[in-house]
Nucleic acid binder design. Structure first.
Length: 452
DNA sequence: TGGTATT
């Protein structure tokens, strides 16, 4: 009766005295009409001045649109007739592709050539930043879903563009709903690395950041000395607050298993079973690699004499690195004078409502650190938590092997100022975690790999 | 020794 891929047309700017029978002759010249309906008001039955039209043949619709849309004005109307696919027709989302992992040099034309063999391309756009640089991805809209699907089958993962880090991605573009979800997730991500110093007046910042840093200091102290467990350091309400701030945290169990399985004693039950953010667990158990004593209070002597691997007599000892870390903590606590720890709910202003829209990732020069020999279990969030005591972390990234989804045990941390970066290097370079020592250096500038 | 990005 009608084509599978027939197009329902919206006809606008129709005089209200024309009914279906009057309109038919005008449209029949482009093909057999499957359905023609003048739109009427649901309650009054009044002619709304528009109609839906479906031809039996898809081609008829295209011909009619080309011949009539905005091409003539019906008697008594001031604007030309509208003939175009109805809103109910695909808005394009089922035939529009998102193309990722493009080379940043590839233009619309390059992308067009790539997709041309698979169908009629209605739209081809390379996404660009404000500076006009390609973001390495594009949208390609085909005329049909089938064409789009065939492009996916043929091109997705089929090749790796020169300079791209992974093979070509070809998939259906996000729907509006998915886009909304994505935006929300991005905002959550922003919130996770929120930098109060940028958005808040100093007075507000100082109390907010101060309390945050106090927590971090206590975590560091607890993990270094082993004197405090998180449950001792923070009332339960406060730990929940930390969890709330720490939106990107992995579930606690994620970190707990790998670390305890290395032979260290199990953490106190209240850590593994409560809603403590994951970072508390990995740091307490994994930071020093020093087992908790049964009473939870290892002596300093134990830490300094028993916790050393054989090679530790050369270059920094565990004691040295612990001392360094303490120094780092002390440095920042000196900047933010100590006050008594009190539950967050009582001292902190509400978490900032303003969310930075811009996702600036790399810090200024001298603010970006390269960290090597991370524990296998560390993710972005754990990395960030580890460096939060030294300042505002604007980004943290652990590199993952794409094939295995395993950490490559190195990553980057960016601060908002060089002093924080230096403090972090001082405190954390050589810091022992398990059997490994962290290497913490300024990240090499992009062009510094070659002497000339 | 970075960036998987959605008009």
């Amino acid at each position: 009766m009608k084509d599978q891929d027939a197009i329902k047309l919206f006809i606008g700017q129709i005089p209200r005295n024309l009914e279906e029978k009057d309109l038919k002759p005008l449209f029949e010249q482009f093909g057999k009409i499957h359905e023609l309906t003048v739109l009427k008001d649901r309650y009054t039955g009044m002619h709304k001045g528009c109609a839906f039209l479906t031809y039996c043949a898809r081609e008829s619709a295209i011909k009619a649109q080309n011949a009539l849309h905005e091409q003539k004005t019906l008697p008594g109307m001031t604007r030309p007739i509208q003939v175009k696919p109805a809103d109910s027709e695909s808005r394009g989302e089922d035939r529009k592709l998102f193309v990722g992992m493009l080379n940043k040099q590839q233009t619309e034309e390059d992308v067009y050539r790539l997709f041309e063999p698979y169908g009629v391309i209605e739209e081809c756009t390379v996404l660009r930043g404000p500076d006009g640089n390609s973001k390495g991805c594009a949208f390609v809209k085909f005329s049909t879903h089938t064409e789009a699907q065939s492009a996916i089958s043929a091109l997705h993962g089929s090749q790796t563009m020169p300079g791209a880090s992974s093979s070509l991605v070809v998939k259906f573009a996000d729907t509006d709903k998915e886009r909304t979800i994505r935006r929300m997730q991005q905002m959550v991500g922003q919130f996770g690395i929120f930098n109060p110093a940028i958005a808040l007046p100093f007075s507000t910042y100082s109390s907010y950041a101060h309390a945050l840093m106090q927590q971090q200091a206590a975590i560091m102290a607890a993990s270094h000395g082993g004197y405090l467990t998180p449950s001792v350091a923070f009332p339960a309400t406060q730990i929940h607050q930390m969890g709330a701030l720490n939106i990107n945290s992995l579930p606690p169990t994620t970190m707990t298993q790998p670390i305890t399985s290395t032979g260290l004693s199990s953490p106190p039950a209240n850590i593994t079973t409560s809603a403590v953010p994951s970072i508390v667990t990995p740091i307490v158990n994994g930071f020093t690699g020093i087992p908790h004593q049964p009473n939870g209070h290892p002596s300093v002597e134990t830490l300094y004499t028993n916790g050393l691997p054989p090679y530790s007599t050369q270059s920094p000892t565990a004691a040295d690195t612990l001392q360094q870390a303490f120094t780092g903590v002390q440095q920042y606590t000196a900047i933010y004078p100590a006050t008594t720890l009190t539950p967050i709910g009582q001292t902190l202003p509400q978490p900032p409502q303003v969310i930075q829209q811009q996702q600036q990732r790399e810090g200024p020069e001298g603010c970006n650190l390269f960290i090597y020999h991370l524990p296998q279990e560390f993710g972005d969030n754990e990395l960030m938590q580890m460096f939060l005591p030294f300042g505002t972390v604007i980004s943290s990234k652990v590199f993952m092997d794409r094939a295995t989804n395993q950490s490559k045990c190195f990553g980057f941390v960016s601060f908002d100022n060089p002093a924080s970066a230096q403090a972090a290097i001082q405190a954390m370079n050589g810091f022992q975690i398990g059997m490994k020592r962290l290497k913490v250096q300024l990240k090499r500038p992009k062009d510094a790999s070659r002497p000339y």
